[in-house]
Design a protein around this nucleic acid. Structure first.
Length: 855
RNA sequence: GCGGGUGUGGUGGAAUUGGUAGACGCGCUGGAUUCAAAAUCCAGUUUCCUUUGGAAGUGCGAGUUCGAGUCUCGCCACCCGCACCA
């Protein structure tokens, strides 16, 4: 018997699929389309296990849908702009473009080795001018439509390197390279008006019924729609007013101070020059710009000494503080605080000894006192004059009405969502196609016929900051309108810009005159199944939804929602290892000893095993999938990443697992190759009877057809693996002796092969050929299950006594209660369990359970 | 801090969505085969007990129900996101 030659066989089939162009897709109105897309990778240099998992998962769907008769589009490309390329440029003196294209070439080879059913003719790279020229055009269209605009925004500024830092480059409030405390800096930057679409993006979530509930919830919370009141407080001894926004107008009588954001327009006016303000300001500015950093920072404030008049309590004046936890981007950048019913306000009030007056009392606690925990629950209003006794909701309406009558403000809808800042002070991104005329500073869009504005090749990363800005000539140009000297915008787009429309570009990736042909895009989009990491649940997915709407509004396509189905996979983790010097060690350099301890393979020194965490290069707990592909082959690698965990959950890499998958691949080959004798011809008729064993096998085969289809549709790939194993276990145990047996065996082989094809396509093709087929499996459609074989005549069901299982009985399917009762009560175990007690109740759920209540 | 999620044997996980907890694997134990090993095959494997039987058991603590891994409430632990990482 020949052994399965994995390397040779897998390569043979990959070449076949490629030569036959099996996966090249073209629009075809006669067929139902199905667009499968996995989030495209950043070309970091090597694929990682997370990629293998993501693409194996998508490939199961793509191959399954193809077998189900759909016209499948399944493309691949590269999210090629981004920071790591610039870091490589700085660290290794490589040009970002060169580095990126090399990485793409290397990763393409790796992905191809996985045997994915990808249409490589649609491949794209976002760093290519033929890609980004179209998004420059989109930007110009957004500009015309008022979707793009300029405003001041705050960035992390490294004062030593004179450069803007990404949030991830800020470590403990310091620049990651310089170690200098980060400062906040205001820059004039481009933004997109995603807030104009807030309501539509929120409502659209209801239509996304094939998205995970959790992602929709996260997006909904991110958009953060709230109903509230915006109204003005009069500043004592001044004409100034402070416009605040609150979602709790009902607590107005519990207000103890008014707070302003540090960058609120009034802040400087009220506080500058005051004792300690500069110190307070620098304390606030030392905290990074990320919301997490701001929220977790200690709440501090500065008393401006100014007071405002309470709108309803005659003579009451409240202090005005500047506080670090108030965000200029939310509401009006000013609040009134009711410490009794808001935790942040309470923490602040305790710190600065401000009043805490409860104004909402829970029904059962009329003497509520607040210590260190604010009361945010339901209740009735108290200590609030005309509001006393009202519910929270009624009090809100009442206050809004009175404020509106006073002409002091109005009830408003507010969103937490902020506009999308798209300017980046970096080289490796798409240039923003505008110039600034030197004479008057006017911002002039680059005319469409001058696109693309290409990145210069000759850049240096010798000094920190944006190389485009340092470039000797690139930014100096002329005004397209007047011909006067002008300076190019040196900022580039946020890389989320590229990933917001790539799925549409795949529909027509070589189009030079436009981003994509509308007919083609309207045929393929929306993406029917999008698959990627849950870490993209909010930003990338929300930006893409917005972008698609904006493109629709600019006439690019008709689609509103880019992804009608979404699946989010979990992270891939691995245990970590550290040596005696607390340095991370690669798993492949660790040897496990017989006593369970670990030592370093080279040095022989002891190594400590740490808990599994998300794979990352810095922790060295990475596995190179290339080693797996080389050693075990693509099918084993694919099978392993699909089999061990449900795809939605985090997944922990283990060496044993791949080994098990590899053994199984070999075993499958053996099972089939040892049973090829006496198989009937393909499509041979059989009208005789079947042995019991053959009937059981046929039942299992047909149940498997349905079970696997259901598993795939529900993304239960780990269960799919179990089903295949169950079927192959049964085939292995089956001893065929008569014609019916061999007929059933061929049927089982065929069903098993088609069903396992989405997961392990190379072996499936090979087996398909072994059992005599001359047409390829890739063109074979999914079988139909024979309904009559799906159920059996008898059911084993459990018998409980007082809710505890005591016995198992066998009943005819759908047996009557009288039959069930008779059989159950005759069972020895049941008799013993009931002992001398009397039956109070007999519960029978046909085909499910019997429960006898005794007492 | 805020938002979202996860928790079941030694281990990855399954459980017809309220109805026989542990499918299918990994590991381990014993056996067969072998000069030996690898590979392969067979058997066993939740825990505990007074073992032809019985009890307990799904992160912890309550509750609803004839019946709870599944529903409700309150905790604990871990993971993801927080707008310039992708």
């Amino acid at each position: 018997m020949t052994r399965y030659n994995i390397k040779e066989t897998e390569e043979k089939w990959r070449n076949y699929w490629e030569d036959q162009k099996c996966f090249e897709a073209t629009p075809n109105k006669d067929k139902e389309k199905y667009y499968v897309l996995e989030m495209f990778p950043y070309p970091s240099g090597r694929i990682h296990v997370g990629h293998v998992r993501n693409y194996a998962l998508g490939d199961v769907v793509a191959r399954y849908k193809r077998a189900k008769g759909f016209n499948v589009l399944h493309p691949m490309g590269w999210d090629a702009f981004g920071l790591p390329a610039e870091n490589a440029a700085i660290d290794n003196n490589r040009h970002p473009g060169e580095w990126t294209y090399e990485n793409i070439a290397a990763m393409r080879v790796q992905l191809k080795a996985m045997g994915l059913s990808l249409d490589w003719s649609k491949e794209l790279a976002t760093c290519h001018p033929q890609y980004y020229r179209h998004e420059q055009k989109m930007f110009l269209d957004f500009l015309k439509k008022g979707i793009a605009y300029r405003k001041e925004a705050i960035v992390n500024w490294d004062p030593v390197e004179n450069t803007v830092l990404a949030n991830e480059q800020v470590v403990d409030g310091k620049g990651w390279r310089s170690g200098a405390p980060v400062e906040r800096k205001k820059l004039n930057q481009w933004s997109l008006k995603i807030t104009d679409y807030a309501e539509d993006l929120l409502e659209g979530l209801d239509t996304l019924d094939r998205w995970p509930e959790k992602v929709r919830t996260m997006q909904s919370n991110w958009i953060g729609k709230s109903q509230g009141l915006q109204f003005k407080w009069d500043l004592v001894g001044s004409d100034e007013q402070i416009d605040v926004y609150t979602t709790r107008p009902d607590t107005i009588f519990g207000a103890s101070f008014v707070g302003l954001a540090l960058d609120h327009p009034l802040t400087e006016k009220l506080a500058s020059g005051k004792d300690g303000f500069d110190r307070f300001k620098s304390q606030c500015e030392a905290v990074g710009t990320s919301e997490a950093a701001i929220e977790q920072a200690e709440k501090i404030g500065f008393d401006t000494g100014h007071k405002v008049k309470h709108p309803f309590i005659e003579g009451l004046e409240l202090p005005v503080y500047i506080a670090n936890f108030i965000l200029m981007d939310y509401g009006t950048g000013a609040i009134f605080a009711c410490p009794a019913h808001d935790q942040r306000d309470l923490d602040f009030a305790r710190k600065y000894n401000l009043d805490v007056k409860p104004v909402v009392l829970p029904e059962n606690e009329p003497n509520l006192t607040i210590e260190s925990v604010a009361y945010t629950g339901e209740g009735k209003i108290a200590n609030s004059e005309f509001l006393n006794g009202l519910s929270i909701e009624d009090a809100k309406s009442e206050i809004i009405k009175r404020i509106e009558d006073m002409g002091r403000g109005q009830g408003t809808t507010n969103y937490r969502l902020r506009d999308w800042g798209i300017s980046r002070q970096r080289y490796w991104g798409c240039p923003i196609p505008v110039v600034y005329r030197d004479s008057d500073g006017a911002c002039i869009p680059v005319p469409e016929d001058q696109l693309p504005v290409e990145l210069p090749e000759d850049v240096s990363f010798d000094k920190p900051g944006n190389p485009l800005d340092h470039h000797p000539t690139w930014k100096y140009t002329t005004c397209p309108e007047t011909g006067e000297p002008a300076t190019r915008e040196t900022d580039t787009f946020d890389t989320f810009f590229e990933s917001s429309w790539y799925f549409a570009r795949y529909c027509d990736p070589r189009n030079e005159s436009e981003a994509f042909d509308a007919d083609k895009a309207n045929y393929w989009t929306p993406v029917d199944q999008y698959i990627g990491g849950v870490e993209h649940a909010v930003l990338h997915l929300l930006y893409s939804r917005f972008f698609t709407r904006a493109l629709s509004d600019c006439g690019y396509l008709k689609t509103k929602e880019p992804f009608s189905g979404l699946y989010t996979q979990g992270m891939v983790g691995h245990v970590t290892y550290k040596d005696e010097d607390d340095k991370w060690v690669y798993p492949k350099d660790v040897v496990k000893n017989d006593d369970g301890t670990f030592t370093h393979a080279q040095t022989g020194k002891p190594v400590a095993q740490g808990k599994p965490i998300k794979m990352s290069k810095s922790k060295k707990n990475v596995i190179d999938p290339q080693d797996i592909l080389d050693t075990y082959g693509a099918d084993a690698a694919r099978m392993f990443v699909l089999s061990d965990s449900p795809p939605g959950r985090d997944f922990e890499w283990s060496e044993n697992g791949v080994d098990g998958a590899w053994k199984y691949i070999n075993k499958l080959y053996r099972i089939v190759s040892e049973r090829l004798d006496n198989l009937p011809e393909i499509d041979a008729e059989y009208s005789g009877t079947f042995s019991d064993g053959a009937t059981k096998l046929r039942q299992k085969s047909h149940q498997t057809i349905l079970a696997i289809a259901e598993d795939i549709e529900a993304f239960h790939m780990n269960k799919m693996v179990a089903r295949i194993r169950e079927l192959s276990n049964m085939i292995e145990a089956f001893k065929a002796s008569d014609a019916g047996d061999f007929w059933a065996l061929r049927e089982a082989f065929e069903i098993m092969t088609i069903c396992m094809n989405p997961m392990i396509p190379h072996l499936a093709e090979e087996i398909w050929k072994m059992i005599g087929h001359s047409t390829p499996l890739v063109d074979t459609s999914w079988p139909t299950a024979d309904e009559t074989l799906l159920t059996s005549d008898t059911i084993d069901l459990g018998v409980q006594v007082n809710g505890k299982v005591k016995a198992t009985i066998t009943l005819p399917k759908d047996a009557d209660q009288s039959v069930a009762q008779e059989v159950a009560l005759a069972n020895d175990h049941v008799i013993r369990a009931m002992a001398d007690k009397t039956m109070r109740k007999f519960i029978y759920v046909p085909n499910r359970i019997v429960n006898i209540v005794v007492g």
